[in-house]
Amino acid sequence: MRKNIVAGNWKMHKNQHETVALLQEIIAQKKTSTTEIIVAPTFVNLAKAVEITNGSEINVAAQNTHQAEGGAFTGEISAGMLTDIGVTTVILGHSERRAYFHETDALIANKVDTALKHNMRVIFCFGEELKDRQINNHFNVVEYQLRDGLFHLEKADWRNIVLAYEPVWAIGTGETASPDQAQEMHKFIRELVEKVYGFDIANELSILYGGSVKPDNAKEIFSKPDVDGGLIGGAALNANDFLAIVQGFEQ
């Protein structure tokens, strides 16, 4: 049975004081739930976040990692550094990394390989831009991103993979793929994984939706059979909104 997951990507928000306050608020207000909660603060606040969430059943993720084990890469963070402070989940391939930092599918595939060598769980992000959907090329774009980024992996590697479909046109824009659009793509993704890796892996794979999920639309989006949770941006910065989204699975 696949896991329901709600992950909050905090991006470049919250200093340490604000990080501690938000985490304490989330922990205090969290209700009993079978949904896994993940938070991804900035690099400088990861160690503190691990300390604060210890014993809370909230997991901490990094927003990125470098593909090398170490070396002369000024400003970068390695997978080994992350696991050393207790961070065992990492977001890779986010659309902002692809767009602003020019990360290619090949580079992201290398990052995935390095993270998996350190037994990290990877939340692998992918999705089409508006122009791709307008010309009905969105399925092709998603397929190529998955094939180039993940389909070199062995079957055993998929136990540490979570997929996050994020239509780029619905990130931070207020636009959201309709629940039916999300389900259509998630079903396509699951069937694509099944063709390559078989029914068991595809059926156990958690596929998250990322793109302007809010408390007022989470329940309907999460009700779809192939949507297993969300990768949340702006709404994750408010404890009430974030936990209301988590409760989208419980209502």
Rank of each mutant, 00 (worst) to 15 (best):
L243E: 06
N240T: 11
S33T: 15
A236Y: 03
I123V: 15
K48R: 09
F222A: 14
E143I: 10
I37S: 01
A106H: 14
G229S: 10
K117N: 15
I207A: 08
G211W: 06
F151Y: 12
E36A: 13
R133E: 05
L208N: 11
H138S: 07
E194P: 03
R147P: 02
K111T: 05
L205A: 04
A72T: 15
K111H: 03
L231M: 10
A21C: 11
E69Q: 13
T104W: 08
A61L: 02
A170V: 08
V246H: 00
K111G: 00
E128C: 03
L146R: 06
K219P: 05
A244E: 12
V227L: 09
L163S: 04
L92F: 06
T88N: 15
I108Y: 07
R2V: 11
T35I: 14
P179T: 09
Y165D: 02
I123C: 10
A68K: 15
E250N: 12
S95M: 09
A79C: 15
H102K: 15
E191A: 12
S223I: 12
L163H: 03
Q29E: 09
I52E: 05
A202C: 09
G80H: 10
D84T: 13
I189W: 13
A61E: 02
T42V: 10
Y144K: 12
R133H: 07
L130R: 11
N137H: 09
D148C: 09
K131F: 03
L92K: 05
S178N: 06
V141Y: 06
N140P: 06
E191D: 14
G86L: 02
D113G: 08
A99Q: 10
F101G: 11
I171Q: 04
A40W: 00
G210V: 05
L92P: 04
V60L: 06
L231I: 11
S78Q: 07
I189N: 07
F126L: 13
H94R: 06
V6A: 01
G75E: 14
A7M: 12
